[in-house]
Design a protein around this nucleic acid. Sequence first.
DNA 1: ATCATGACTAATG
DNA 2: CCATTAGCCATGA
Length: 103
Amino acid sequence: MGFRLTLRNLNKIGLSPFAKEVYKVVSGIPLGEVRSYKWVAKKIGHPKAYRAVGQALKNNPWPLLVPCHRVIESSGELGDYIFGKKNKKKILDLERQIKDLVL
DNA sequence: ATCATGACTAATG
DNA sequence: CCATTAGCCATGA
């Protein structure tokens, strides 16, 4: 079966320092807002590794918890998503609605 | 160490 | 806007 969500188990999953930084930064993107892959890359001190950022997010062990749906292309296009672009947009729309209603 | 792969980007036509 | 292309870099085989 699945594994329990504990710090010990999280440490078992060998995440590269790079990936960790990516998840850390992405987790800081506010609800309903978006940033580009390039923005994330620059933020973690690897300004030219924007493509690798995509790799890291593709392997995101906790989609939804680490809001990889808030990372889009610098052109404004949505970019890919593990659950499909449609859902990526859907989730972002919901987040904006919630933000309007509650906050 | 080398090589291919991609949730990318910017430039060009 | 669309298609093509060179550049880019962490990652896994």
